[in-house]
Nucleic acid binder design. Structure first.
Ligand SMILES: NC(=O)c1ccc[n+]([C@@H]2O[C@H](COP(=O)([O-])OP(=O)(O)OC[C@H]3O[C@@H](n4cnc5c(N)ncnc54)[C@H](O)[C@@H]3O)[C@@H](O)[C@H]2O)c1
Ligand SMILES: NC(=O)c1ccc[n+]([C@@H]2O[C@H](COP(=O)([O-])OP(=O)(O)OC[C@H]3O[C@@H](n4cnc5c(N)ncnc54)[C@H](O)[C@@H]3O)[C@@H](O)[C@H]2O)c1
Lengths: 224, 224
DNA sequence: CCGAGCTTGTGCACGCGTTCTCAAAGTGTG
DNA sequence: CACACTTTGAGAACGCGTGCACAAGCTCGG
């Protein structure tokens, strides 16, 4: 049975699968063979009933009275998340943030191989970051196609975000992770996730203020 | 009427207020006096009815047949988000990511002043990043209290995250933005938001895979 | 082979958030 | 001043996600 043939997986569940994946990886390293939903919930920081419901969307992989086989579950989640294969990734905008991302080892460990670095600054083009040389934005289309890049990371200033997103999409990229604080739209059939640190800080500020002026408590958890 | 005296604002709304804030800032710079919910929705990338409902939680600031006064609305949202004051911020873990954050100008522009940089590496302590010298983790408590830091940014390896979070909380920090890919808990009365880039990529990977194997489309928007 | 003890899988109720819809309330033109 | 037009604000219905609660199913000791 292929990943796509199963019943639809709720978005909230998809966002939690990586948490289970991480928890199971750590558990597997400790040579633990099976794990209960309660234990997994604890490691992932969620509710046990939620774990069971989430996993039930993937199929019935648990054994009542015993729990889930760590290795098997890990394999099923990997398959579902597409972590059994490598994804070539391009980063566009090699400034402060882009460089940090390019130097980060944690991505490769999960199968996301940064293969292409792109920037518009001529002074930066040709410059090496780790093993990779920065490529000109003029060559975006060519180099993205060459490496069959499906996932692009956008770390340019906000003003360039929509333009770069359009170019990435035109070059065949169908998933974009956007760090630029800008509303940026992509056509149907392309995914875009936004990470906006200023927004995160402003949300924290909101609850911080509420705490200062009243006894209001922020919600304990949030959707990813 | 103080921010806290009004009716409870849904979390989803709080997460969108920064979007409206940004859109209104850009609109205000163009000398536009009023804005309709429809236009604001377009700029923020959301639904117009949602904009109206969100803003109605803050009070009735619109004029029927006209729209919202840009300056006034901006002021109200700023007040609600706590952006009328400055928040001193500390960054702990001055590696790849911590450095990028420390060098980022966008935070100061919104009232988040990075005043303290903390790391455990003796080779890094004393080293200057921009205007700031890196302080030892041993002095965390002292320096955090000295600067009345309320918001902490956690950019250490995952293994140190819980320990650092505990220290921050002990020193009086009540809001934490966590970049470490680790489940990390804080006591009641402290907010913690998590930004996990590997999870974002894995979610993209999930929908990427679905698109490849079937015609399944990812959801168009998500909760912040 | 039976019964005690665990743990999964899911039906169900509830609450939150989204969106449709429309009356109410404003503007402005003749 | 009346009427056409615009836009807000909120009621209501709906859908999704969460978490309780429990039957079903497995293990293991005796
Ligand atoms: N640095 C941070 O910690 C941080 C934090 C939050 C958000 N951000 C956001 O991330 C983005 C990048 O931040 P940064 O600090 O790295 O900025 P930066 O100015 O250091 O880097 C931006 C890079 O993008 C390149 N660029 C500009 N236009 C381009 C284009 N059209 N095509 C390709 N490359 C182009 C520039 O040459 C530069 O190298 C910004 O949108 C910023 O708001 C950064
Ligand atoms: N760099 C990235 O682009 C990136 C992307 C995604 C996630 N992350 C996560 O962000 C975190 C930081 O990443 P990085 O690439 O900057 O790592 P890094 O190794 O470059 O930097 C980590 C820094 O934390 C310091 N540190 C370690 N233990 C500490 C402690 N107990 N107290 C204070 N400081 C301590 C280290 O001395 C080092 O300077 C990691 O958890 C990483 O997984 C980073």
């Amino acid at each position: 049975m292929t990943a796509a043939s199963r019943r639809r997986i709720p978005e909230a569940t998809v966002a939690r699968l990586p948490l289970y994946y991480r928890a199971l990886m750590e558990t597997g390293e400790r040579q633990v063979a099976t794990i209960s939903s309660e234990r997994l919930a604890e490691l992932a920081g969620v509710n046990a009933a939620k774990v069971r419901k989430d996993l039930s969307y993937l199929g019935s992989y648990g054994t009542r009275g015993v729990g889930y086989d760590v290795e098997y579950l890990l394999h099923e989640i990997s398959r579902e998340l597409g972590l059994t294969r490598d994804w070539p990734v391009a980063i566009v905008g090699i400034g402060n943030l882009g460089r940090a991302l390019a130097n980060y080892r944690g991505f490769g460990a999960r199968g996301f191989r940064v293969e292409v670095l792109i920037d518009a600054d001529p002074a930066l083009v040709g410059h090496r970051i780790g093993e990779l040389a920065v490529v000109s934005i003029d060559d975006l289309d060519e180099v993205v196609r060459e490496h069959s890049i499906a996932i692009g990371i956008l770390a340019t200033p906000a003003s360039a975000a929509q333009d770069v997103a359009d170019r990435l999409v035109a070059a065949g990229v169908t998933s974009i992770l956007n760090f630029a604080p800008a509303v940026c739209s992509v056509p149907e059939g392309v995914s875009m996730r936004k990470v906006d640190l200023a927004i995160e800080l402003q949300i924290l500020s909101f609850y911080q203020l509420r705490r200062a002026t009243s006894g209001a408590t922020p919600p304990r958890e949030r959707a990813g």
